[in-house]
């Protein structure tokens, strides 16, 4: 079972990201599950969402305690929340930032991960470019596909089209593709 935990802030599409991931995995014939860390919906508050992908059915309901993939949608959270709590450091680390790991001050943790399991990309800037909104989620999902190969772009596109009306879906697909290309191009 592959477990994903997404950290972000209310309004960044964290919950939608986990949903899109689970739907994409479903589209590829896998079993998947996604759910948010539940709370009153407030813009800007730290938010988590979870997803699991598996070849057989999933019964567990606890939040993802030991994520194989950590997606950090907002790097300011490094100072607010222990995002690495329980993380499987043999897994993956995907960060939305235009800074380097050392600039982010997380080298101590990130050095535990295999180098080719880490991706840092300016997803917010790309989101603004493609969808004209500071919602980095679909860019990061594209990057997720490239980094982990747990889901693939065609399924992700399908999931985005299912969730959003065409006018919103198309720019988001472009954003996801941009995220994918950026990470896929990196020599590993």
């Amino acid at each position: 079972m592959f477990q994903i935990r997404i950290h972000g802030r209310g309004g960044q599409g964290v919950v939608s990201a986990s949903e899109l991931l689970s739907v994409a995995a479903f589209e590829e014939g896998k079993y998947s599950q996604s759910f948010p860390s539940f709370g009153s919906e407030r813009m800007g508050a730290p938010v988590q969402a979870f997803a699991r992908i598996n070849d057989t059915s999933i019964t567990i309901r606890e939040p993802v305690m030991e994520p194989d993939m950590l997606i950090i949608q907002d790097p300011t959270l490094f100072h607010a929340v222990n995002v690495f709590d329980g993380a499987n450091t043999q897994g993956y680390l995907l960060i939305n930032s235009s800074k380097t790991l050392s600039e982010l001050g997380i080298e101590e943790m990130s050095s535990l991960y295999p180098k080719d399991h880490i991706a840092v990309l300016p997803a917010t800037e790309l989101a603004i470019k493609y969808i004209k909104q500071a919602k980095p989620n679909t860019v990061l999902l594209g990057a997720f596909a490239a980094l982990s190969q747990m889901v693939h772009m065609p399924a992700l596109e399908k999931a985005i089209r299912k969730k959003f009306p065409k006018k919103i879906a198309e720019p988001n697909i472009l954003a996801a593709k941009a995220g994918y290309r950026l990470i896929d191009a990196i020599e590993r």
Binding site: F26, Q33, F35
Partner: peptide
């Protein structure tokens, strides 16, 4: 509530 109502599953 939430655990099932808000969970996206097959």
């Amino acid at each position: 509530g939430f655990i099932l109502t808000h969970a996206i599953t097959r």
